[in-house]
Amino acid sequence: MRRILIAGSPGAGKSTLAREVARRLDLPLIHLDRHYWRAGWVPSDDASWRATVADLAARPAWVMDGNYGGTLDLRLPHADLLVFCDLPRQLCLFRVLRRRWAYRAAGRADLPPGCPERVDLQFLRYVWRYPRQSRPRLLRGVRTWAPELPVVRLRTRAEVRCWLAALSHP
Rank of each mutant, 00 (worst) to 15 (best):
P116I: 06
P116V: 08
P88S: 04
L93K: 10
R129C: 06
A105V: 11
P131L: 04
L111K: 03
L93C: 13
F94N: 08
A106W: 10
V119R: 03
E117H: 00
L97Q: 13
L87C: 05
Q133E: 14
P112R: 04
S134G: 06
A102V: 07
R99T: 02
L111A: 04
C115S: 03
L138D: 00
R98E: 14
V119T: 10
R108E: 08
Y103C: 10
P113K: 07
W128M: 07
P136C: 07
D120M: 04
P131V: 10
R98K: 13
L138W: 06
G107D: 13
Q90I: 11
P116E: 09
D86S: 08
R118C: 10
L121Y: 11
G107H: 10
L87F: 09
A109R: 13
R129K: 14
V96A: 08
C115N: 04
P116Q: 08
R104K: 03
E117C: 06
P116M: 10
R137D: 10
V119D: 00
L124C: 11
R118T: 10
L91T: 06
W128Y: 15
W101V: 13
D110V: 01
R89P: 10
G114M: 01
L124D: 11
Q133M: 12
L93W: 06
R98W: 13
R100L: 14
R135C: 09
R99N: 00
A109Y: 09
V96T: 09
Y103P: 03
P88A: 02
R99A: 05
P88G: 03
W128F: 12
S134A: 14
R100V: 00
S134Q: 13
P113M: 11
A102P: 08
R125N: 13
L124Q: 06
V119N: 01
D110S: 01
A106E: 13
P113E: 15
L121K: 12
D110Y: 02
C115R: 00
G114A: 04
R104A: 14
F123N: 04
Q90E: 15
Q122R: 15
R137L: 15
Y126A: 08
P116W: 09
Y126L: 12
F94T: 12
W128V: 09
L111C: 11
Q122L: 14
C85H: 08
R98I: 06
R129Y: 03
E117M: 01
Y130H: 15
P88I: 01
D120R: 01
L138M: 13
R137Q: 14
R100Q: 12
R98Q: 15
Q122A: 15
L138I: 14
P131H: 03
L97S: 06
L121P: 02
R98C: 14
L121E: 13
Q122P: 06
Q133D: 15
R132M: 11
L91G: 00
Y103T: 12
L97C: 14
L91E: 04
C92S: 11
L124W: 07
L97W: 09
C92Q: 07
C92A: 12
E117L: 01
Q133P: 01
W101F: 08
A102N: 12
D110I: 00
R100D: 07
L97V: 08
V127Q: 00
L93I: 14
P136R: 00
Q122E: 15
R99K: 11
R118K: 11
F123S: 04
